[in-house]
Amino acid sequence: MQVTRVSPDTAAAPPDWVIGTVWIDEISAPTGPSRLRIDSVHFAPGSRTVWHRHPLGQVLHVTAGTGLVQRRGGAVDIIRAGDTVRIEPGEWHWHGAGPTTFMTHLAVQEIAEDGTEAERGDAVTPDEYPSRRPTD
């Protein structure tokens, strides 16, 4: 088995896509006919994405810690190591760490034929992000 490293460095997430401190390790970037992207995303406590949506959906698999995910119009759900969340194509959502916990997840999505990965929306407001962990 040959191991190919896509990127040797952890990169800070683009600041217009996140609130707080978030790091990304690229695991697989689309090349050739494949349009599959896989990133390992590390969120510091209280950090999260902005509202966004993916044209072909997204799968999140939590590998460490405890975090939160919310779909537009839905409740804020707790996600833990081992949980997998499927975000439907075009569904507005956000995800990140809990207010006092770190969280790492794999983010898996197929890039649209036109190269679109995601559409960025508004920041998650303090009213939308719970200052305390929601009850289980």
Rank of each mutant, 00 (worst) to 15 (best):
P45D: 04
P126S: 07
Y129D: 02
G98L: 08
P8A: 03
E117R: 10
R71F: 00
A12C: 09
V69N: 06
D136M: 08
R133V: 09
H93P: 05
V18A: 08
R48S: 05
H42A: 02
T100G: 05
G67Q: 08
Q2V: 15
V85S: 01
I38P: 06
D16V: 10
S34I: 09
A12E: 01
D16Y: 13
T66M: 12
E113K: 08
M1K: 14
I24W: 08
G98S: 00
T84E: 15
I78N: 06
T101P: 10
E91D: 14
V124I: 01
G74D: 11
A44Q: 14
D83H: 13
R133A: 04
G82Q: 13
T4M: 07
E91K: 12
R86E: 11
I87V: 06
P30G: 02
R120S: 03
E117S: 11
A12I: 03
A12N: 15
G121F: 00
I78G: 03
V69H: 06
E117L: 05
P89A: 03
E117T: 13
D127N: 01
D77K: 04
P33A: 15
R71N: 04
G96W: 07
R72K: 10
D9F: 10
R80N: 04
T4K: 12
A118S: 09
E110S: 08
V62G: 04
L56D: 07
L60G: 00
P15N: 08
M103E: 03
D114H: 14
F102S: 04
G65Q: 05
D77L: 00
V69S: 00
A81E: 11
G32T: 11
G32N: 10
M103S: 14
I111R: 08
P89H: 10
M103A: 15
D25L: 11
L68S: 00
W17G: 10
T63C: 07
R48D: 05
D16R: 15
E88H: 13
S28Q: 07
W92N: 01
T104A: 14
H105E: 09
A123S: 04
Q70M: 01
P45Q: 14
V76D: 06
S28I: 15
T49K: 07
R53I: 01
V108Y: 02
T135N: 11
H93M: 09
A97Y: 02
A29S: 14
G121D: 02
D77H: 04
S40A: 15
S40K: 13
L36N: 01
Q2H: 15
I111Y: 03
E110N: 07
E26Y: 15
W17F: 15
L68V: 03
S40R: 15
E128W: 05
